[in-house]
């Protein structure tokens, strides 16, 4: 019934691995990740760029996967989703802090917050509260009132800085 062009086989780089997926050019990264790659950790709350739940990183930058055509990510760009934050079975400091400090209640907006916060801390390891609010202003959370999220990111920043210092000294 629908006038669909043929699907094409593409290679996406997701969480450090190459994924061979066949999809239509009108598919968004969100759809391909969730429906074709089985990576359902990335959520969706509006599919119109109005909530931030679907945020993922493309080459380290936070983008909305609902407004990103997947076909524009097949040129070797590195896509990072919430599933790619932990190293082996070790949670990322942001994940630890969100879990410990109440940064996640229902958990639905959490993946979007986590990847956005990761991109932000990678660029700004010791942010002020004001900078943090700005960086997370594209992610809506209906549960927490954000304050425990801010604290979680700040704790993670501290832990990451400590780990960085320890690594320096270890060298």
């Amino acid at each position: 019934m629908m006038d669909m062009p043929p699907k094409e086989l593409h290679t996406l780089r997701v969480n450090g691995e190459a994924l061979e997926v066949a999809f239509w050019p009108h598919r968004t990264l969100l759809e391909v990740l969730r429906e074709d790659a089985g990576l359902t950790g990335t959520k969706h709350g509006c599919e119109l760029g109005e909530c931030g739940a679907c945020a993922v990183l493309v080459d380290g930058k936070p983008v909305l996967s609902c407004l990103q055509l997947a076909v524009e990510c097949v040129g070797g760009q590195e896509v990072t989703t919430v599933e790619g934050l932990a190293q082996d079975n070790r949670l990322h400091p942001l994940q630890e802090a969100f879990a410990d400090l109440g940064g996640s209640q229902c958990g639905y907006c959490t993946p979007g917050f986590l990847v956005t916060a990761k991109a932000f801390l990678d660029e700004r390891p010791r942010p002020t509260r004001e900078e943090l609010k700005e960086a997370l202003s594209g992610n809506l959370c209906r549960c927490t009132g954000y304050l425990q999220i801010f604290e979680a990111v700040e704790q993670a920043a501290e832990r990451m800085a400590e780990a960085g210092r320890a690594e320096e000294q270890g060298r």
């Binding site: 760029g49 983008v63 700005e134």
Partner: peptide, 8 residues
Amino acid sequence: ATPHIQAM
């Protein structure tokens, strides 16, 4: 809009 939309 938002930082994400500014990035895109």
